[in-house]
Amino acid sequence: MAKAFKYGLKGITGFLEPAERELLRSLIDDVISMLQPEERANQDPLAAMIGLDMDVQEPTDRAVRRLLPNVMKNDDGASLEFRQLTERSLRETKIGALRAAALDLDKDDIVLTAEGARHWSMALNDVRLVLAERLDIRDEEDAEHVHLMQDWSQAEDVESYLALVYNFATWLQESLVQAMLQSLDTRA
């Protein structure tokens, strides 16, 4: 069984079983592959290098759209323009956090610096956002419904399995954020 993250002398520490690490790693890899910008043959390499992507479109996949939302509520044109300037960098920021978390999964005990913890919290959040889209969590009621799935012996189809995985990621993120908040208190 995983142990909740806690804040102490060594920083923020946690422990995950090998199977849990494997699960998290595959979830993280899935999100990374969703965020990987597609390479286009005629792409301007200089523009790509400085983070511009003039051919970018609003993502069609709901989950990707939630990870990379429009910056304006009622102005698709301005949002798209903003996307051209920022989306590639945002994808890279997210992939960076996800990769950093995946690297920490190589060890049995997880010991995180403040920076590492921030990467982990971002990575877990993105994993949960993607799972929530797959589970069709649209409101609090849906979330409550999913939350009821706590017993692994109930896992009999893909949806119930995903719900259990989501709840595990939620529990893990909550324990991590509590430890991070504690570390903020201590520093203040």
Partner: peptide, 18 residues
């Protein structure tokens, strides 16, 4: 606020500017 919005999106929060 646009810079903040990108940072919020980095954290996974749903942010817009207006």
């Amino acid at each position: 606020v646009e810079r903040h919005a990108v940072a919020m999106h980095g954290f996974g929060l749903w942010a817009t500017v207006e």
